[in-house]
Amino acid sequence: MRSSLKTRFAKAAALAALAAALAAPGLARADVKLGVGAPITGPDAAFGAQIRNGAEQAVADINAKGGILGQKVRIEVGDDGADPKQGVSVANKFVGEQVAFVVGHFNSGVTMPASEVYAESGVLQITPGSTNPKITERGVATIFRTCGRDDQQGEVAAKFLAGRPGEKIAILHDKTTYGKGLADETKKSLNALGIREVLYEGLNKSEKDFSALVSKIKESGATIVYWGGVHTEGGLLLRQMRDQGVKAAMMGGDGIASDEFAAIAGPGVEGTFMTFPPDPRQRPEAAEVVKAFKAKNYNPETYTLYSYAAVEVLKQAAEAAHSFEADKMAAVMHSGKTFETVIGPLSFDKKGDVTRADYVVFEWRKGPDGRVSYYQM
């Protein structure tokens, strides 16, 4: 990947100015900028809110303690709308604003092209939610993630389904980088276990009427539908399955990890399964942060704390490197160093993946308060 001379010059000038400010005691120090790229609007806005809220709370807590390397952190938010082209525009905007690092994006299909812009421009990136394996398989030294990978959760899903003898499995996806990637990884793991699906189909994210697809599910005799996609289409598909008398259970990945899934799917959501790491809200390291969120009447579910943790990692990496330069921070992160975060200790391998893979299975059911949500099995 080759960056333009203009981009290189701008980046070099920004780093030189930053170095001069750090080296001269008594001079005013400019804020260091953190870009937060996420779907703030659109169908995946629930996840965008989680990423934004997590990053903003982390920055507020860090600034209250003096910032990073003596500088306050200022957030620049970019709305990618879950669209790859818009994500690239956000990435170019961040580069033009001379952000030092980025937390984002959420959708794997957005992270892939945006990450090329960041890599070319020397901007460190941590995604809290993009799980497609290819993201860290391209040899890009400055991209990391605090979440796991689809091949990891696909394997967990396949083992769970294989442990339910007699199930007839339909595999559906939304044709996105994330959704199809997750469905294919699960299919691959199932097939390796000697289990063949009775149906494999894709749908378009823009569709609202899934009647024809529901008819295919019914004709296939499927007893469980594995869904590769997010909560919006997944919830709508499940509602229409129930409306047409299809009683097959559903299982999905981390893309349905939002209470909005239950609101969209309706009463038929009970009995749905999902892969996700153990609830980060229950970790002792997260207790104070969770308390702060609840004081704001906000439930820090799923990716909120993964985003908060990404900012914590950036702070510790910059301080260990004594620099905001992407290559120096990346070298620290690739070194095997353990970072203490609200989702527990994290370290990264040479690809930029976290070294722990802790996906488990959740079930959607009524809790003690009568509200339907996801609970670890």
Results as ranks from 00 to 15, higher is better:
L34C: 08
L34I: 08
L34Y: 13
G35C: 03
G35H: 04
G35D: 03
G35S: 06
V36P: 07
V36A: 04
V36K: 00
G37K: 02
G37L: 14
A38Y: 04
A38H: 10
A38L: 07
A38D: 02
P39D: 04
P39S: 01
P39Y: 05
I40G: 05
I40Y: 08
T41R: 07
T41H: 11
P43R: 15
D44M: 12
D44F: 03
D44S: 10
A45H: 09
A45K: 13
A45S: 15
A46V: 15
A46P: 08
F47C: 09
F47W: 08
F47A: 06
A49Y: 07
A49Q: 12
A49P: 01
A49S: 13
A49D: 14
Q50H: 12
Q50S: 04
I51N: 04
R52N: 05
G54F: 09
G54T: 05
A55P: 02
E56I: 04
E56A: 14
E56M: 10
E56R: 08
Q57T: 06
Q57W: 04
Q57I: 00
A58Y: 03
V59H: 06
I62Y: 14
N63K: 08
A64C: 13
K65L: 12
G66H: 05
I68W: 03
I68Y: 01
L69N: 08
L69Q: 06
G70V: 06
Q71M: 10
Q71E: 10
Q71S: 08
Q71H: 15
Q71P: 02
K72S: 09
K72H: 07
K72Q: 11
V73Y: 00
R74P: 00
R74H: 10
R74D: 12
R74I: 02
I75Y: 00
E76L: 06
V77K: 05
V77W: 00
V77P: 03
D79I: 05
D79K: 03
D80P: 06
D80R: 07
G81N: 06
A82K: 04
D83C: 10
D83Y: 11
D83V: 10
D83E: 13
D83S: 15
Q86A: 15
G87C: 10
V88I: 15
S89Q: 15
S89W: 03
S89F: 11
S89G: 15
V90F: 10
A91W: 03
A91Q: 02
N92H: 10
N92K: 15
K93P: 01
K93L: 11
K93E: 14
F94P: 12
V95W: 12
V95K: 06
V95L: 09
G96Q: 12
E97I: 01
E97D: 14
E97K: 11
E97V: 01
